[in-house]
Amino acid sequence: MVTSTGIQLVEDFSLEMTGKDVEKLREAAPAIPHGTRINVTFLGNEDLRMRVEAAQAVRELGFTPAPHISARRLRSQNELEEFLGELQRVGASEHVFVVGGDPKTPEGPYSDSLALIDTGLLSEYGVKEVGISGYPEGHPEIATSDLWYHMVEKTQSLKEQGLDRVVLTQFAFDAERVNTWIHETRDRGVESPIRIGTPGPAGIKRLLGYARRFGVGTSASIVKKYGFSLTNLIGTAGPDRFLSELATTIEADFPQDDVKVHFYTFGGLQATAEWVNEFSGER
């Protein structure tokens, strides 16, 4: 049974799409509430035009674009400013999400997201709110102490620049760990709204594959939280159990207008939107 607390947690949810998902977004649009925040990735196989056109499509369809900026993928300051300028031109620069990105070796002058934020360039192109990363279950290649240091430093830098902040996390599977991590975040003076990354309904093999890639949980822990069997990897798994447990876990500790859900859709925008509607009882 879904409680009112669980429904409140998924209110004002956000979604993630790639630059190649524009047609999927058009198809899913009727199932997505007007104004929903939709993050647009910054992947190595996407170019500037694809990223900008995707962000523009998000806005034109009545949603709020939050394009990603991958610091280590940028080859120069000119490339950063060109991207920001194009986003501003199409009305999609107010909300951005700044992340270090996958390349271990920077392709240009920005070693990490903090270095990019510290340029002070974002506000010059109409940026009003910046999303930064959170890792409730850690990162497979970054020390936990470094993750905390960078979160606090990015928060302080953005505050000094007069920019709003939101923490968007890598997806998680352990509700108790997420609750503890939120406490740890607040204890460090980070008062920004938090969006907990959650896999939308996805094929079980794909779900486990992404978890292994990002070092999140173990197969056994995911099975326990999601309720499927490792001997039967056919079909899909949804986050029903995880979100119900998370809502119950954080209910007593945090106002839920400060904690919301961000869905990693794996390309399944419509399936995720329909799942949210069903979870919320909106037939």
Rank of each mutant, 00 (worst) to 15 (best):
T5D: 11
P67D: 00
A29L: 08
K260G: 15
A247W: 07
L114N: 09
N277Y: 00
G189P: 05
E278D: 15
L84T: 03
S111P: 02
L230I: 14
S70E: 03
L43P: 00
R241Q: 12
G44V: 08
V99Y: 04
E141F: 14
V99A: 04
V98F: 02
T169Y: 02
R177S: 12
A252C: 06
G227Y: 14
L84F: 10
L43Q: 00
V167E: 05
H68A: 12
L74M: 05
A211G: 14
W275S: 15
F263Q: 10
F228I: 11
G138H: 04
P106G: 09
R51S: 07
R26D: 03
T236A: 11
P201Y: 03
F173T: 12
W275H: 13
Q56Y: 06
Q8W: 01
G126P: 05
V216R: 03
G101R: 04
V99M: 08
V178D: 02
A28W: 09
Q170F: 12
K128I: 10
T18W: 00
F83V: 02
S145I: 11
F63Q: 11
Y135S: 04
K104M: 13
T272W: 08
E282W: 00
P140T: 13
G120D: 12
M151R: 06
F214K: 06
Y264E: 07
G134T: 06
R195M: 04
R51K: 15
P33N: 04
Y149E: 15
E141D: 14
D112P: 09
N277M: 06
A252R: 13
L147S: 02
P255S: 11
V22C: 02
I7W: 04
E27T: 08
V52K: 05
N277P: 05
L122S: 03
V223K: 15
S93K: 10
L25H: 11
T18V: 01
D257Q: 07
T18Y: 01
E94L: 05
T155G: 15
V127R: 08
T144S: 13
A252D: 14
T36Q: 09
F63L: 07
F63M: 09
H139Y: 06
H150F: 14
L168V: 15
G268L: 15
F13Y: 13
P136K: 03
S111A: 13
G215V: 12
V127D: 06
E124R: 13
H262D: 05
L74K: 01
P67A: 11
G85D: 01
G101P: 11
L74G: 00
I32E: 04
A247V: 06
T119E: 09
E94Y: 08
D12C: 01
D257H: 10
E251D: 15
H262Q: 05
E160F: 07
W181K: 04
Q256G: 08
D164W: 03
D118C: 09
G35A: 07
